[in-house]
Design a protein around this nucleic acid. Structure first.
Length: 935
DNA sequence: CCTGTCACG
DNA sequence: GACGTACGTGACAGGG
């Protein structure tokens, strides 16, 4: 066997990082037989398994090792006794798992090494140098920036989280200098995580600037006196020794004494017996089975025994700490804030919340931030509270005393909020992320308790924090109303006294943390982790970007329409009052009812539960044959709606700075998985009537750009064809037929070439009816035909497509048995009313039938949106809006075709590979200067 | 604050 | 046998 050399490829896996990631990513699982904590081991095994599976192709390793930190002090503590001094001891339940991860590595037949007195990074450095000198390639599997100094000359890093390779350019992007100067920059910038001091006040940006100017650290320090900025100059002169120590701390050692050689690291196939033996000893049933299947051997039998009295759920429940508002801290200076940031680093996560002057993220100001990393312990950092008017003769616009400078606080918080190793937990964190984005902070990675609640319990209850706190923590939080008041006299949060704000804001962070601790393991137990991780969590940044992008709305167009509507309405109003014989408020259904049914004595007056006549559009439509007034009222109402809701209200939503309208998407608004759009709702802009449709002309592209709209064609009927297994429907979609005409032909025995628009219209109504959980009454009302006739249609439909009936019955039965229904992607929609008696039973049944269809369509477009972000990143295009089955883009003129090709591909394949649909998805596209043209 | 009405998919 | 019924949303105006 020849030794390591040219053509060889060494993979070095940062084992310790794997362990911590696994520990934080997974709920605290225990071995069933004896309660040994094995969550981290389980995650570690999964990562190794994925690594082994992916190790093929041109980048495959010929040699591989997993490298661990040796527990205890390293030689760096002799250089600087405070090195990594802020690191807390490993969590109690993680400690026994350390040796098990070594066992796991060996079980996979992968070399595993650690050396006393050295860190994993040093071993990785030494092996990288050796491999490079021998002419081979190296891939370091880690996202630790301290390892970036090793890159170059055939050495690359692979970020396993993002599955992204990092080469020399990646280093330059991160540090502003090449790999050989990374240590110089780190020596200056220091590192709060490892407690490397560096030069106070100098961060990576400034450090890179200085190093690039002077060449290297030694030259810089020697010539520090030449620096123009007095503060910088003094810092470097005063802290020379500290900077030199820092460099020795960050410099990795390429001469670690190894008790093995690279040749010992050659890749070996796992031995089934050893690997399965280890997995069954750990009682990992799922992985055992998967690996056994892969290896083509029998999976080991793992006894399923639970010790008497053990309650795994109860063991997982977070500790009950009483709520204590007096325990919350008000943070007023940098040192205090740094302590809270350090606390986040200790555990690797932090719940945080922002307080602002209002609810419109695009406009409001930041007033304060609250943090919590341990239940019961939380702080509030007031930043923008105004002094009370009584203290300030100049109208109370001065900042209150005892607050940190906003920029200083953000400088301390930003590295932590952007640190990939620190999980930021929020309740509706999209809101906080958007606020902070306007202050130059890009919050990531994130978890969101609102979305967790939604993935777990959609259909059971709302997902606002107050409701969740009450239900799951038995704690009623302070109401914001009690601080701000209501109505006209309401104040903004910056006017709330700081002492009151602390109690309210810190409590929110505390509650969020506790909810997270509660929900996180439940995701796993309730099997909704995939839904949360693939359909909820990654959508947050996508929606945030769309909302911030906004859509350009032309004020003049709206204003002109508004005037035209007003004129027409005035004319109609005169005519209506003339016909009524007296003056009244046309916009009042109550008064209108009295005119129609009492004064004019028209037939069919039905009083509702509060004694008023019903005057809905369908009733007026029927009355239109009796009298000419109802038609005029209908016309008036349409104009009134268009004017008040669209041409007038929309103008007020145009952002003064951007000239665009920025909606907010609510991810948890609809139980089925659909989004909801608010402030303003851009998912109900008119299209069905010709007059309403023209409002879309006001949604325009910027100069030099084009609006592109892509929408799924018949997505819900396609999903119905799949889930109900209707072959005729599937075939029709495959053949590209007119689906409603085909339904009509099938039902009414009319050949396709003799189809009339009226028959087709009826079939279309039936097709939609099926999706909604059809009833004879509903169809009769929709088609304005006798109920018996409608029922006949339905019977015939079921006869021709018997799969539909089966689907409906099975779905209702499933809902009754489980209390929920599911989409094809595993989203659970709860149906608590399914067992109800009375009219609600009908509602619940139809909702249960509709939910998997509407929900699966919603899941598909969510997947498309999540992938779209990356897919169009190279194009001069932005995704602006989602309207359930449609995506709206703005793209540079000339790039429309490129965008359509990419976006259509993403949308049509959005269900792959999780779900293989029997029916192809089809997407229509349109372009134009405005939304009306593009549709 | 609730209800009726109507805009969308 | 009667009861009421298409599914999912949000915004606005009127009225207490």
């Amino acid at each position: 066997m020849s030794g390591f050399g040219k053509g060889c490829h060494l993979h070095l896996i940062d084992g310790s990082a794997f362990i911590f990631r696994a520990y934080h990513a997974l709920p605290p699982l225990t071995r069933k037989s004896d309660g040994l904590p094995v969550g981290a081991v389980s995650g570690f095994v999964n990562m190794l398994q994925r690594y082994v599976e992916g190790n093929s192709g041109p980048d495959a390793a010929t040699h591989v090792a997993v490298i661990f930190d040796y527990s205890g002090k390293s030689f760096r503590n002799e250089i600087y006794d405070q090195y990594k001094a802020h690191r807390p001891p490993a969590p109690e339940d993680l400690v026994p798992q350390f040796p098990l991860t070594r066992d796991a590595t060996r079980a996979f037949n992968i070399a595993c090494h650690e050396i006393e007195g050295y860190e994993a990074d040093d071993i990785i450095a030494t092996l990288s140098c050796q491999a490079r000198d021998l002419g081979g390639r190296v891939t370091i599997v880690s996202s630790d920036k301290d390892l970036m100094q090793l890159i170059g000359g055939g050495v690359e890093m692979l970020d396993p989280m993002k599955n992204k390779r990092i080469g020399v350019e990646g280093v330059e992007e991160k540090f502003g200098v090449g790999p050989e100067r990374v240590v110089d920059v780190q020596a200056l910038a220091g590192d709060s995580v490892d407690n490397v001091p560096g030069a106070p006040g100098i961060g990576i940006k400034t450090a890179a600037l200085l190093i690039n100017e002077y060449g290297d650290l030694e030259t810089l320090l020697d010539r520090a006196g030449e620096i123009k900025q007095p503060k910088r100059r003094q810092t470097l002169i005063d802290n020379r020794e500290q900077i030199e120590v820092s460099k020795r701390l960050v410099q990795l050692d390429c001469n670690t004494p190894l008790d093995f050689s690279i040749d010992d690291l050659e890749v070996r196939d796992p031995e089934p017996e050893a690997l399965l033996g280890f997995l069954s000893a750990m009682e990992f049933r799922t992985v055992s089975k998967r690996i056994a299947d892969k290896m083509g051997v029998d999976s080991p039998v793992i006894p399923d025994k639970t010790p008497e009295g053990a309650d795994p759920i109860a063991a997982d429940a977070p500790a009950q700490v009483p709520f204590d508002a007096d325990a919350y801290e008000c943070v007023r200076d940098a040192d205090a804030l740094r302590k809270w940031v350090a606390a986040a680093y200790e555990v690797g996560y932090v719940a945080f919340d922002t307080e602002t002057t209002g609810l419109n993220e695009m406009v409001v100001d930041l007033v304060g931030v609250s943090l919590s990393s341990v239940a019961g312990q939380a702080c509030y950092v007031p930043l923008g509270h105004k002094s009370s008017a009584a203290d300030d003769l100049f109208g109370g616009d001065a900042l209150a005393e005892g607050q940190m400078d906003m920029n200083e606080a953000l400088e301390i918080l930003k590295p932590m909020l952007e640190d990939e190793s620190i999980l930021k937990i929020g309740q509706n964190i999209k809101y906080d992320a958007k606020i902070l984005a306007r202050y130059g902070v890009n919050v990531a990675p994130i978890d969101d308790t609102m979305l967790m609640s939604y993935a777990l319990n959609a259909g059971l209850h709302g997902h606002g924090m107050d409701a969740l706190s009450e239900q799951y923590l038995s704690h009623n939080p302070i109401e914001i109303k009690s601080l701000l008041g209501t109505g006209k006299s309401a104040i903004t949060f910056d006017r709330v006294p700081v002492d009151d704000a602390v109690k309210y804001a810190a409590e929110d962070a505390d509650i969020t943390l506790r909810l997270w601790q509660l929900f996180k393991p439940q995701l796993h137990q309730k099997k909704v982790t995939t839904v949360y991780e693939t359909l909820e969590r990654p959508l947050v940044p996508v929606l945030a970007r769309m909302e911030m992008a906004g859509v350009k709305v032309d004020r003049d167009t709206l204003s002109r329409m508004s005037n035209a509507f007003a004129q027409k309405m005035a004319g109609l109003e005169d005519e209506i009052k003339q016909l009524a014989g007296r003056d009244f408020n046309v916009g009042s259904p109550k008064q209108l009812g009295e005119i129609l049914f009492d004064d004019l004595g028209l037939p069919g007056g039905k009083k509702g539960k509060n004694g008023a006549y019903s005057t809905g559009a369908d009733i007026l439509e029927d009355l239109a044959t009796e009298h000419e007034m109802p038609r005029k009222v209908l016309d008036w109402r349409q104009l009134s709606k268009l004017k008040s809701t669209y041409t007038d209200a929309l103008q007020n939503h145009i952002n003064a700075d951007t000239g665009r309208v920025h909606t907010s998407y609510l991810q948890t608004g609809a139980s089925t998985g659909r989004l909801a759009s608010t402030d303003p709702n851009l998912q109900n802009i008119p299209i069905r009537s010709e007059e309403g449709r023209r409002i879309r002309e006001a949604f325009v592209a910027e100069q030099g750009k084009t609006i592109v709209a892509l929408d799924y064609s018949q997505i819900e009927l396609r999903i119905l064809a799949h889930v109900a297994g209707i072959d005729a429907l599937k075939q029709a979609f495959r053949d590209g037929q007119d689906i409603h005409a085909m339904t009509a032909s099938e039902m009414f025995d009319v050949p396709m070439d003799q189809m009339t628009s009226d028959i087709r219209r009826q079939a279309k109504a039936i097709n939609f009816g099926v999706i909604y959980g059809i009833s004879g009454f509903g169809l009769a009302r929709n088609l304005r035909i006798p109920r018996a006739e409608a029922q006949g249609f339905i019977d015939r439909y079921f006869e021709r497509f018997p799969g539909i009936r089966t689907y409906m019955d099975e779905t209702v039965a499933f809902a009754k048995e489980h209390g929920y229904v599911e989409t094809l992607f595993g989203r659970k929609i709860h149906t608590p009313e399914i067992g109800a008696k009375g009219p609600q039973a009908g509602f619940a049944k139809r909702a249960a039938i509709n939910a998997p269809i509407q929900g699966t369509a919603a899941d598909i477009i969510r997947r498309a949106m999540i992938r779209m972000d990356h897919a169009i990143s190279e194009l001069p295009a932005k995704m602006l809006l989602q309207v359930h089955d449609e995506l709206l883009f703005e793209v540079d003129q000339g790039a429309e075709d490129d965008l359509i090709a990419v976006a259509r591909d993403v949308m049509e394949n959005a269900s792959d590979p999780a779900v293989k649909l029997d029916v192809k998805l089809s997407v229509d596209a349109g372009t134009g200067a405005n939304w009306a043209e593009a549709h």
